[in-house]
Each structure stands twice: as C-alpha cells, then as structure tokens.
C-alpha cells in the first residue's frame, strides 16, 4: 500500500481495467476540491477531449480514527506493521460504504450510451 505524501497530491494512479474494459484510476486530493476539478475540466478543453470519456467519482469515505492512527504509525519504522494493521481495520470499517458506491458507479456506467 503506497503512502500518500504531500508531494503526491494530484497524482493519478492506474489500477487496471474493469469487466467492461473501462480504465480505472485513483486520485488523491486533500482540502477544497473545486480547483482540481476546474483544472481537469480545463485540461479536457485545452486538448478538445470529449468529457464523456471521463467519469470522476468523489468517494465519500473520510479518514476514520483507525485510518488516521494507522497512517501516523506507518511513518515510524518500529510501529509500521501495527500502523498497516490499523489501516486495514479502518478500511474494513469503510468497506461497506465504498462497496455500495462502486455498485452504483458500475450501474451508472451500464446506463451510459
């Protein structure tokens, strides 16, 4: 699991293709999201790219206490395994919400022409 650093904000990570051949990416942003959204929109305008090619989903999951503690401990070499364990627990806690969001997104993609 890669650690998110300040310098990596805005980095787009490719994760593979889904069953319908759509490319799936992950993007980490912190704070107000209006500016990055406008940047992406401007990029698409700049190169006259079709906006339908791009489907951005904002995950509502926020860092819970386990995730925050886990990420903090991950920075310390001695407690890194404990940090990773806490991160896993934190993710498990959010898993239900994330899973239903993904199902909704897949449903929306299926409805698209």
């Amino acid at each position: 699991m890669p650690r998110a650093k300040k310098k990596s904000a805005g980095r787009i990570l490719y994760h593979g293709r889904d069953g319908r051949g759509n490319k799936v990416y992950a993007l980490w942003l912190k704070g107000e999201k209006g500016m990055p959204y406008r940047l992406i929109d401007s990029f698409l305008d700049l190169y006259r790219l079709p906006k339908e090619e791009f489907y951005m989903v904002d995950t509502p999951a926020r860092d819970n206490a386990l995730l925050v503690a886990g990420q903090f401990l991950r920075r310390m070499p001695l407690f890194s395994p404990l940090g990773l364990y806490l991160v896993r627990l934190g993710l498990k806690k959010e898993y239900g919400g994330l899973s239903s969001l993904v199902q909704k997104v897949i449903g929306n993609l299926t409805d698209l022409p």
Binding site: K7, S8, A9, G10, R11, I12, L29, M35, F43
Partner: peptide
C-alpha cells in the same frame, strides 16, 4: 504539485 501531477497524469 497538484497542477503538475494532474497535468502529467491526464
């Protein structure tokens, strides 16, 4: 860094 990373990623 957000601008640079987003531009490179896109």
């Amino acid at each position: 860094e957000v601008l640079e990373n987003l531009m490179a990623g896109l």
